[in-house]
Every structure is written in C-alpha cells, then in structure tokens.
Design a binder for these strands. Structure first.
Lengths: 340, 340
DNA sequence: GTTAGCACTCTTTCGAGGCGAGTGCTAAAC
DNA sequence: GTTTAGCACTCGCCTCGAAAGAGTGCTAAC
C-alpha cells in the first residue's frame, strides 16, 4: 500500500511533469509543492515510489517521470472521488445555443469546441446506426431510375442514400411508396429494417423493378448502418506537444487516426458507461505509444451508445480532459434525448 | 533572354532539387543530366542564371537552389507547351467506377485519390451554391413544427436544412406544399430562390405560420448558398516533406488550412479557367512561405465553376501535379455535366 | 524519521579542429 | 570565343573532449 505522503509526492510529480514535460527533481517538488519537508525526504519517498513502479528515471542523474501506473492511479482517484465537475464550459454552451437544428452539425461543433479548449485531438463516435430507430423516411426523385432516400431517425440523425428505382416512378408514386414504407418501418431500428425489406421483396406482388429497388434500398441501408461514424477533430493539435517534436512520430500518430476501423474497435472496447481511460500501453497500438485516450459515453435514444473521447500524449491534463469530456457527454445525451 | 542551354541547366537543377531537396552542385548536373559538357561550363551557366534571378545559393559553398522565378518559368513552359497529359490515372477511375451516386461522395473520393497519389494536400472547392439550380425539393416532417428541407440541384449536389413550419402540417400537407414549391422553383438558381420566396411571403394569402416557415426557409437557403464548400484532404501529407521537418512550420501550415475563408478567397482568385499556379511568395500568405498552390478549374452545371487544387512545398513535382489536377478537373466536369 | 553534506553519475553545451562539398578564378586548350 | 582543368578558398557539418549543471544516493548527524 502507498502512504498518504507518497500520494502527495506522486501527485506533485504528475502535476509538474504535465506542465513542463521535464523530469521532476526532488528539490523542485520540495520547493514548489511541499515546502514543509526537505528535498532529502522527498528523495527517499521518490526512491520508494520508483521501487513500487510509479516513477522512473530516464537516466541516473535526471529527475523522475511518472509511469503509466502512476497516471492510472491518479485518474482512478479523480474519477472515484468525484472530483469531476460536469458544469459545461461557456463556449460549448454558446456553440449549442446558436440554434443549430441538425444533430450532426451540433456534434461537429462540440468536437471543435472540445479540441480548441483542450489542445488535444477529439474523436466522437456517433452511435451504431443499426440501433437508431426510423422516425420517418421519404423517396425523392433524382432522375429517371434513381431516387434519393432520406431517413430521419429518432435521435435526429439524418441519413440519405441514392437508390435505383423503376424508371416509370414519378414524384407522386414515390411519395405513395414512401408513405407505405414509412408506415411499415416507423419505429423499427435500422437493423430490423433490412430484414423487413427482404421479406417484402418475397411476399409483395408487383412490378419487379420496384422490388429490385427495395432490395437495393435494403442493401444501401445495410451499408450505411453497419459502420459507426467517427468525427475526428484537431488531429494537428498533437504538434503542439513537445513529445511530438519528432516529425516521424507525429506522422505515425496521424496515420493511426486515418485508420477509422481500428479506432472504432478501440472506442467500442471503452468502458461501457461513464468515464474511462486507456493510458499509455493500455491502448495496445504500437504507433500510439506515449498516448492516452480518455473516453466518456453518452446515450442517444434508447439503447444506442456513442462515445466522445480525447487522444493526446500520456502526459495529459487529465483533470481538465475528464471534466470537459464529462460535461460534453452530458450535453450530448440530453440533446439527443430531446429529439426522441 | 535566356539561352537554350541555360534552360536545360535550369531544368536539370529543378528536377534534381525536387527529387533530393538538397542544393544542386555543378558536378551533379554535369554528371547526371549533361554528360557532354564539363562541370566548369555548368558552373559558368549557373553563375549567369543566378545573376538572372533564377538560382540562388543558401551559402557560398553550397550548390544552387531554384528560385520562385525558376519554377514560374518551368511551370509556364509545361502548361504552354501542352506537356500535360490528361489521361486519368487508373485508381482515380476505379474510385469513380465503384458506382457512387452521390456527388459529394465522388468528390471526396477524388480528393482522397489525388492526395494519396501526389502526397500533397488536396483542396477541392465545390461551386458557389447560389449558382446551382434547383432540380427538385421536398419537405419531410421531423417533429411538430419542424421539417427537413431537402433540395436536389442540377449538378447532383444535395443540400438539406431544418426549417420551422406550422405545427399542424402533416406529411401530406408538407408534400403538397413541396410540390407547389418545386413547381415554382425548379430550374431557378439558389440565388434566385431567395428572392422568389420573399415575394411569396408578401403576396400569397394563407396561414401566417406557413409564411413564417417560408421566410425561415429562405433564410436557411441564403445561409447555405452563400458559402462555397471546401473539401480538404491529406493535410498531414505535409509532414512527409523535409522542408517541414520543423514542427513549428508544419503547425503554421496546418493552421492556414483551418482558415477556410482565407482559402476560399484564394481559390476564387485563381486563373478563371484551365490550369494555374501560385508559386511561393505569389500566394501572398506569410505562413505559406515556401509553398505553392496549383489549381485547375472545372465546370459544374452551366456557369458555376469549382476548383481543384494541390498545396505543397514550392519544391513540388509540377509535372505530376499538373497532370493529376488536369485529369481530375476533366473528370469532375464531365461527371457534373452528366447529371444536369 | 528527517535533514545537511558530499561524492558521484550522466546529460547537455560549447568550442576547436578536421573533413568534404562546391564555388570562383585563372590560365591553358580547342 | 568557348570550354576545360586546376587550384585556392569558403563554409557548413561532424566529431571529440572538456566543462558545467542537475540530480541522485549514501552517510552521518539531529
């Protein structure tokens, strides 16, 4: 077990290291954080903390650097002790109040606010679309043989896809079909919609071209609903941090952000609700060595969960990040419930 | 006037410098590009070229580096002599053939292909939306008092906006209104639509709430149509180039790309048709020092012009870039004409 | 248990010296 | 008159070594 004073020393090291990105020496801790004891005492404590695996020395005559374990302890402490204040920041609220109606614009704006404020990279995953429920849908004529299918879901997310339809369908006929479809499909999740559409094409009698159109539509929905959407914002922020003074490293970081599938898999693994964090090697991606990912889950409609997360160097201001994420997730949940 | 052989030397310096990013010495030019003459001869030519302002030396015992003027000469030469082959690359065609119907997806895919292939940053400006013509439109009920307006334009670009409508309008009523509106507005440009809608709200008698909805709609269209859209792709590619080994510089570069307004103004100034280039200081943005922007214009529908451009270090493979841009613009023009 | 003192280690910084690349100039050759 | 060989000169870059500085661990005293 770790003593009270060791905790204090550890916290001091973390705070100072987060600020300066330089190994922290015993004298610094004593002077800036714990003036009541001498540097020699701190030195002893630090030596013990190193043995416990919470600190390490880049080299023998340098100060100490917190380990992944140290950050873990610190973050768990922050979360458990409820030191996170979810009051949203002013500018996030301003972004929201500028009366944007369309969900995805709002999410985009929040991502932007988040990464402006934290100077890290923001990734928001919108919920798996198969879990979204159809609120209404409509077919709009584009050109002979093609129509635009617009699906409005319960959380306000709008999806559109171009589908092939029979050549002879005009606007009125498409509208009639839309009404029937909307009637049958309203309230169903996008996942269910596929199955229903397939059974349609087996049982309904009618123009084979229309049936072809319906199958096409099912396929499009399948395609649309099977992937979650990621909104990535401020990836260039990584260049602000001295850990990434090496361009090679920055490039590898940005490369990972391009691989959306990998990120999505990662986000899905994050703690099922509330706040969570992957610290350093916990991420399990070699190219993200030295990074942490902090995530917060939000609810969109019933049962479908999205995450909002921040990726930055392990040496990260966890307090600030947890706070921002927490309030953002909170607002997102409230917003997306509102439109249900 | 510049002699034939000076041109050859200049071209050799440019080609070698573009490849290596190192000052080019006389011996290198003689050995690799002009084995028929000696390095001393090249040395004399280079000295003259420096006097003419086409070459410069980073320091006295280094090789020569081409100046902005040199690139200008070279690019003008390439364009004027018709050395640009517009045959599209295979993978660009593949991206297109993967049957994407929606214009914006196609444009996105082309941007991606372009920056994968060139390793520079691609910026595509879609045409000013006020010039787009309405093909059809439809109002879709979202919730009481709000509807989604979907406008399909002649070039296949789809715009949607949430508008406030009277509370008592159900799907059928909205559809009826849509038909009337589509009838009145079809073929008009988005710019004209605003005016027409305003005159509506003065002359049509009816439910004031509907009128309010129409005014709201006009405002939304105004907002949507007044800004051009930029698609930026591969901004992190800049990190691949040794000029940007300095993180500070890379950051400034990425910062400029975030300022869309500035970019749009720049794109608008580019040569009104065909190929054009801003080389180095011609750009006129301090933070883009050492960069060039090459642009190609494309037509989308009648009268509305978009540009596709590539931003990279001044030391850029202009031949390749001009070629890729030219063929991409060509394909875009053809594609967007098709859907008219 | 805490602290002062001190020897020790290791990085960082700075300057000197040598190396190499490339030039400009001169004089000779074509 | 143009081209070429030869040579002295310049200047950036690399390496090496010494000095400085930061921080530790240990010991002995409080």
């Amino acid at each position: 077990m770790i003593t009270k004073r060791q905790k204090l020393v550890l916290e001091a090291v973390i705070l100072d290291y987060v600020q300066t990105c330089e190994p922290v020496g015993s004298r610094t801790v004593a002077r800036k954080y714990m003036p009541q004891v001498s540097s020699a005492t701190i030195r002893n404590e630090m030596s013990d903390l190193e043995e416990l695996g919470y600190l390490s020395q880049p080299h023998v005559s340098a100060g100490r650097v917190p380990s992944d374990n140290a950050y873990r302890l610190y973050v768990d402490h922050l979360i458990r002790e409820g030191l996170i204040d979810t009051t949203p920041r002013e500018d996030t609220q301003r972004a929201l109040s500028s009366r944007m109606h369309q969900t995805e614009d709002v999410v985009q704006a929040m991502a932007q606010a988040l990464c402006d404020w934290t100077h890290y990279t923001t990734v928001i995953m919108t919920p798996r679309q198969r879990d979204l429920r159809v609120s209404t849908l409509q077919l709009i004529p584009l050109r002979p043989g093609a129509a635009l299918l617009v699906i409005v879901t319960d959380s306000g997310i709008i999806r559109d896809a171009v589908v092939n339809v029979a050549e002879d369908l005009d606007a009125d006929k498409l509208y009639a079909i839309s009404r029937v479809l909307a009637d049958k499909l309203g309230g169903k999740s996008l996942g269910e919609v596929q199955g229903i559409l397939h059974s349609f094409s087996q049982f309904v009698e009618g123009d084979p071209k229309v049936l072809h159109g319906i199958a096409d539509l099912a396929r499009q929905i399948q395609k649309q609903s099977s992937n979650d959407t990621l909104i990535i914002c401020g990836s260039e922020n990584i260049l602000y941090h001295p850990e990434y003074a090496d361009v090679q490293k920055a490039r590898r970081f940005l490369k990972v952000l391009e691989d959306e599938d990998k990120l999505i898999r990662l986000m899905r693994h994050s703690s099922s609700e509330g706040l969570g964090a992957f610290i350093g090697s916990e991420i399990g991606i070699a190219d993200l060595e030295g990074c942490s990912i902090v995530t917060a889950a939000y609810q969109a409609g019933k049962g479908s969960r999205g995450t909002v997360s921040i990726i930055g160097p392990t040496r990260m201001n966890y307090q600030q990040v947890l706070q921002s994420l927490s309030s953002t997730a909170d607002m997102l949940s409230r917003m997306l419930r509102r439109t249900t």
